[in-house]
Design a protein around this nucleic acid. Structure first.
Lengths: 247, 247
DNA sequence: CGTAGGGTTGAATGTCATCAATATTTGTGG
DNA sequence: CCACAAATATTGATGACATTCAACCCTACG
C-alpha cells in the first residue's frame, strides 16, 4: 500500500528503452532538456499509478515492468483497454484528466516528465511531437486489432491471440528471434487476462488447459510458457499465418 | 460498381467541416498550400474506398456521409473497427499500406490530399501535425470506449450504446441540443450495426425490437429513430448517467 | 501449521448464434 | 404502373459456448 518512490538516477545513454520511447528521435540537445524535467518512479505490483478522472501532473514512459489501462462500469465489470510494456507512453499531452485507471500489473519503473514543461518542450521540438504521433498511431492499430479479438473471436482464439502478442513483444524486447520455440513468463494473472479478453477467469483457465492438452503450449508452473510452434499458435489465434512476422 | 469521381470544386471558406478537420487550426497561408494539393472525391454507398493492404496515394477528411473501417478474418468473420463521420481523418501519414478496408457506408464525399505533398507540408506545419495528434488521441479514446462495449456489455447494452453515440454525434453536428427528444436516421444497416457491435444481425434486430417494445426508442420505418428520454437510453447502455453530456 | 491468493475443474444456467421461414422495402424492366 | 427480383429486416426454434456458482487444489508465507 505504501508508495515507495524509490528514486534512481540513471542516464539516458544507457537507458534500455532509449531507441523505442518518445525520446527515440531526440538529439543530444533535446535529451539534455528532457533530463532536466525527468525523474524516475517505481511502483509495486498492484499499485494504482493514476485513478481515472484524476488530474495528471506528469506523462512518461514505461521503463520496465507492465502497466495496464482499465475501464470499470458501475456494477464492477471491468475491461482492460491497454497493456503498456517497456517503451510505451503514458499520458496525453494537452489533456487534463486521465480517462482510465493506470495500474502497475507487475513491479514497474517509469521515466516521468513534469507535464507542463513537457508540453512546452513538445511544442518546439518536432522530433518529440512526431514520435508521439507515430506511437499513438501504433496504439490505435493495436486497439483496433483488439476490437477484432473482442468482437469476433472465440475464447480459445482469444487466449491464443494474447499469448501470441506477448510472445512477439517479448521476442522484440529481448531480441531473441522468432524461429524455434519461444519461451517466456506470463506477466498477467488469469484474472488480468480475463479482463483483457472480455472473458471470465474460469474460461481463461479452461482454455489454457485445453491449449496445453492439445500441445499448442507447454506450461511449467502457472506462468512459464513454452511455445513449440509459433505458426501453430497463430493458426489457433485465427490470424493469417503469413505476413505477421515482419512486426 | 462504376467509380464516379464526380469532382466538385468547393472552397475551404464555406467548408462544413472547416473547424473540426485536420485543417482546423490552419491559417490562410496554410490553407492555400492545402488547396493546391487537394481534390474532392465522391463514393456511392457500398463502394470500397481503399482495400486493406493497398498502397494509399492520398489521405483526407470525410466531408459528408459515413465511412467505416473493417477487418475481416479468413473465414469471413468481420469486425468494424472505426466509424468515420464528417470531419474524421482517413489515412496515416508516414505509413504506406492501408491496414483496414475503408468502405463507404452511405454516399460519401471526401476531401483528399495527395499523400506525399501532404506529408511534406505536415513536416513544416506544426498546426497540422498538432491537430492530427489531437484527433488521433480522440480516436484512440473512442476505440477504447468500444473495447469496453465489445468486451463487457450485453447485446441490449451494445445496441443502446451505439444509438447513444450516433445520437450524440448527430446532435453535435446539427447543433441541436440534447435536451428533449432526439430524432435522427440510422446511417447503418442491421448488418453494419452487427459488425460494429460484434453481434449477429438477427440479435441486433431482436434487441432493437425489444428496446422499441419497452418504449426506450420509437421507430418510424426501419431507420428513423426517436429517443424520448436520453437519460433512459444511457442507463440502458450501462453508462454513467451523469457527466457524459459534456462531450 | 494454517491462511490467503491464485488457479483448476465440474455441473447447471443463460445468452447469443445458427438455421430457417416469412415479411417488408427498394429497385428494375415490361 | 405493376410485377418480380433482390436486398433488407423480423421472428421463431434449437443448440453451442461461455458464464455462473461451487468445490477443491496448490504454493508462498507469516
Amino acid at each position: 500500500m505504501s508508495t515507495q518512490p524509490q528514486l534512481c538516477h540513471s542516464n539516458c545513454d544507457d537507458c534500455p528503452i532509449r531507441h523505442r520511447a518518445v525520446c527515440a528521435h531526440c538529439d543530444t540537445d533535446e535529451l539534455e532538456e528532457l533530463e532536466e524535467i525527468k525523474y524516475y518512479r517505481s511502483f509495486e505490483a498492484g499499485q494504482t499509478v493514476i485513478w481515472s478522472g484524476d488530474q495528471m501532473s506528469f506523462v512518461g514512459s514505461v521503463v520496465s515492468g507492465i502497466a495496464s489501462l482499465t475501464q470499470t462500469m458501475e456494477d464492477g465489470r471491468t475491461q482492460m483497454v491497454g497493456l503498456l510494456l517497456p517503451s510505451d507512453f503514458v499520458g496525453r499531452p494537452g489533456r487534463d484528466g486521465a480517462p482510465y485507471d493506470v495500474v502497475a500489473t507487475t513491479d514497474l519503473v517509469m521515466c516521468c516528465f513534469r507535464k507542463k514543461p513537457f508540453e512546452e518542450l513538445m511544442a518546439r521540438t518536432p522530433h518529440i511531437a512526431h514520435r508521439l504521433l507515430e506511437m499513438t498511431l501504433d496504439e490505435l492499430d493495436a486497439a483496433r486489432e483488439w476490437m477484432l479479438v473482442l468482437g469476433r473471436k472465440t475464447a480459445r482464439e482469444k487466449i491464443a491471440s494474447l499469448l501470441s502478442i506477448i510472445a512477439r513483444r517479448d521476442a522484440s524486447l529481448t531480441k531473441r528471434g522468432m524461429s524455434g520455440p519461444m519461451v517466456f513468463d506470463l506477466p498477467l494473472t488469469r484474472e488480468a487476462m480475463a479482463d483483457y479478453l472480455g472473458l471470465t477467469l474460469e474460461t481463461v483457465s479452461r482454455q489454457i488447459s485445453a491449449l496445453k492438452k492439445d500441445g499448442v503450449i507447454h506450461l511449467e508452473g502457472k506462468r512459464h510458457v513454452t511455445i513449440p510452434d509459433m505458426g501453430r499458435l497463430m493458426e489457433e489465434a485465427g490470424d493469417d499465418t503469413d505476413g505477421g512476422f515482419l512486426v
